[in-house]
Design a protein around this nucleic acid. Structure first.
Length: 297
DNA sequence: GGCGATGTTTCCCC
DNA sequence: AGGGGAAACATCGC
């Protein structure tokens, strides 16, 4: 689940838990975690470094080190960063372990092994819209605007949608190079709130719809943060707790349930290869628009 | 046990 | 440019 609200929750917790601590050592036996850098070199670069701050950029957890570098973590599907006050039995899917000099530790658990870590130039993440890049390294791609920042205005969104006018709105919102941090769940919930069909093309949205989408994105992301993120399967926050946002879903994973707004039955389709939920009455596709022919029930 | 689905992202093909 | 599909993995539910 780690989308923007889940990552923000973890980053905020870690800020209070690890800032000021010094790394004693880093251990990992999952080589792809730090690729292309070998884990032992990675460990050597981290040893003795202090954690100066923790923040979020898109779906990345950013741990600022001294010397202007940062340790960034991409949780992907099932990654968890768990703070440990003292020695505990290793998580069954532990992929890395960061021990601090005072005996506390940060454990990285990840069942599906999609998670990645890198040490990067921290300034490259600051305020800029570029993440550091290194050829072939998935963490280092271009990241778009932060949807909860002041830079994300209705005007920006309108221009963005116009530029990418031919794309369907649902997969477009998932593109991290446009808006950074939106994942499948909040995408679906925001489109429902804005009453926009997932297959509408970006360029076809009227001004009032763009305004609603802008409000809806910020509203669902903020609510997700307020509720500590959403738990689906493996999500746990930095304290090992589940979020509460999953109880607040209006359409996500609710096929067959009545729409909370109009009572029509929520349907599940597939858009851009992703499971998608919407209300067929509240979220209409205009006559003559692309039919959801490629979607499957 | 088999099949399909899962929150993410990249890559390759058309 | 954008869409589709597969792949990176492991687990879970039907």
């Amino acid at each position: 689940m780690p989308e923007l609200p889940e990552v923000e929750t973890i980053a905020r917790q870690l800020r209070g838990l690890i800032v000021g601590r010094t790394i004693a050592h880093f251990r990992s036996d999952w080589r792809r975690l730090t690729e292309p850098e070998p884990a032992d070199l990675f460990a050597a670069r981290l040893a003795g470094r202090a954690i100066r701050g923790v923040r979020r950029r898109g779906k990345l957890v950013v741990m600022d080190l001294d010397d202007g570098e940062a340790l960034i973590v991409s949780l992907r599907m099932t990654g968890q960063l768990l703070f440990r006050e003292k020695e505990v039995e290793a998580h069954p899917y532990r992929r890395a372990h960061i021990a601090f000099t005072d005996g506390t530790a940060l454990e990285f658990a990840d069942t599906r092994k999609f998670g990645r870590m890198a040490i990067v130039d921290a300034t490259a993440l600051d305020g800029a819209t570029h993440a550091p890049r290194r050829v072939g390294e998935p963490l280092h791609r271009f990241l778009g605007v932060e949807p909860l920042s002041r830079a994300f205005t209705v005007r920006w969104l309108r221009d963005f949608l116009a530029r990418r006018g031919r794309s369907a709105i649902k997969p477009l919102l998932l593109d991290q190079t446009g808006i950074a941090g939106v994942g499948n769940i909040y995408d679906i919930e925001a489109l429902w709130r804005a009453r926009i069909h997932p297959l509408r093309t970006a360029g076809s949205l009227a001004d009032d719809e763009v305004g609603r989408l802008h409000e809806a994105l910020r509203w669902v992301l903020r609510k997700g943060i307020r509720y500590g993120g959403a738990t689906r399967r493996d999500y746990r926050d930095a304290r090992g707790k589940e979020g509460r946002m999953q109880r607040e879903f209006n359409v996500y994973d609710r096929a067959g349930d009545p729409c909370p707004r109009c009572g029509a039955e929520i349907v599940r389709t597939v858009v851009g290869g992703r499971g998608t939920f919407h209300c067929p009455r509240c979220q209409r596709l205009p006559r003559g628009a692309a039919r959801p022919a490629r979607s499957r029930a």
